[in-house]
Nucleic acid binder design. Structure first.
Lengths: 187, 187
DNA sequence: CGCCGAGTTGAACTGAATCAAGAAACGTGG
DNA sequence: CCACGTTTCTTGATTCAGTTCAACTCGGCG
């Protein structure tokens, strides 16, 4: 919990009272490896702060899994689009390892936004961060070849590249596992 | 101005007083066709609400222009990533026609966020909208071929497809003008 | 031990890029 | 208002990055 407070405080410092109110809507949850945090077709009710373990976010397109994100500990996981719109999600979030997380619900968060300007600000900053991540990915897809995208990912996040399976990593890069395997050989 | 207020009110209704404070930081600006709202290398200081005309947002990658967004009237234009981070942008925003817009600066907006919870909320909602748009684009790139992406864009926004030049549209779809020309022929 | 999923490699194929040339549209100045 | 140069769009021929399909290897685990 302290860790989560520190994370949020880097976005916008909270008073002890604000933190008390926020922490009252947070609940700890655990998942076994391969468990689902959310499945396609459901409406996302939560944002998860992962304290231990790893989560993969993916969608299924005609029987084929495509990874959209890998969440390591000390980061947020959610089918965020669905969380924001209230529409059923096309995404599934699955634990890649045993996972411990802290989660809070949309309903409680919206109520907190009404009460607390600071909470609203943190909500804004989280959305802005999420936007920045997506934009950087958009630019990569538009400007770089598969090989270049792999190279950039390797630079930016070597741990991710080492940790995630070829299959999942390939779909995240928008290519087939065979292609990623060849790209790796050629380096 | 009324139009902008209505737009913002759909996100979160404001009192007259809140609107008065917001509108005091808004200034009208005009651009001739081909003028730049912001150029690559600069830090984006503004968000523009376009009331008349069209704006193209693009980046230059090794001498090649790649379009990231087309903003029609009644929408926001900005090198938003740079606006958020304060870092120089790689994007350029150029008027595709004569343009009228209302703009407000980052400095003034941040000050307003401090004063007004409602402003902060609107800021959050705008960031969330921007995130949703990028996510939908990410999913399209990961799941669809060039032909399918064109088809989807045609469905979602036929006016855009009719209005924007082949060259610009192609780069937005992540393909070459020749390919787009062929895709169009085959439909 | 033998199976099974994950990764690698090869060969053929395909969607889109590239290069080159011609046709149409555009605006600028006489 | 026309004539000219310039940019934009289209079409064809070729090349290339990445896919697909198939076979093989390897390590883990019952």
């Amino acid at each position: 919990m302290d860790e989560l407070r520190q994370w949020l405080d880097t976005l916008s410092p909270q008073t002890d009272d604000e933190w008390r109110r926020f922490s009252s809507i947070v609940e700890p949850v655990t998942y076994d490896k391969n468990d689902f945090l959310i499945q396609a077709g459901q409406v996302e009710k939560y944002i998860y702060y992962v304290t231990e373990g790893m989560v993969r976010l993916f969608l299924n397109d005609n029987g084929k899994d495509i990874s959209l994100d890998f969440i390591f500990s000390h980061n947020f996981a959610s089918a965020y689009s669905s969380f924001l719109t209230g529409q059923p999600t096309q995404f599934t979030a699955q634990a890649l390892t045993d996972v411990r997380a802290l989660r809070f619900s949309r309903t409680n968060l919206l109520a907190l936004y009404d009460q607390s300007h600071t909470a609203e600000r943190i909500g804004r900053l989280i959305a802005e961060q999420a936007f920045l991540r997506k934009t950087s990915r958009e630019v990569q897809f538009l400007t770089s070849s598969a090989k270049q995208r792999y190279g950039q990912l390797l630079e930016q996040n070597p741990v991710l590249v080492q940790t995630i399976s070829v299959r999942h990593l390939a779909s995240y890069l928008g290519i087939e596992p065979e292609s990623l395997s060849r790209i790796r050989r050629d380096i």
